[in-house]
Amino acid sequence: MCTYSTRRLPLRGSGKGAQGWMAVTDATVYFDHPAHAPAEHTLNIDFLNPSLGPAARVAVELDRDSASLLADAIRELLAAG
């Protein structure tokens, strides 16, 4: 299916993309078709810096279980920290 399901959020941090380290200012999170992962749908996250152009992007495509594990790990670490 083509879910279109998408969330956008502003954020502050850095990411390492094809051109090296850069500030990231936005993220797009969506459960939809991947570009590369061998699955029909994946949880995709684009960390972006639109001011640097479309290629200023750190992208991941995770299967559903992996995305859940990642989300749990982030919440646990933030709660403990």
Binding site: L48, P50, P54
Partner: peptide, 10 residues
Amino acid sequence: PDDAAAAARA
């Protein structure tokens, strides 16, 4: 194409 698709979605 994948960067363009991401930019358009955003």
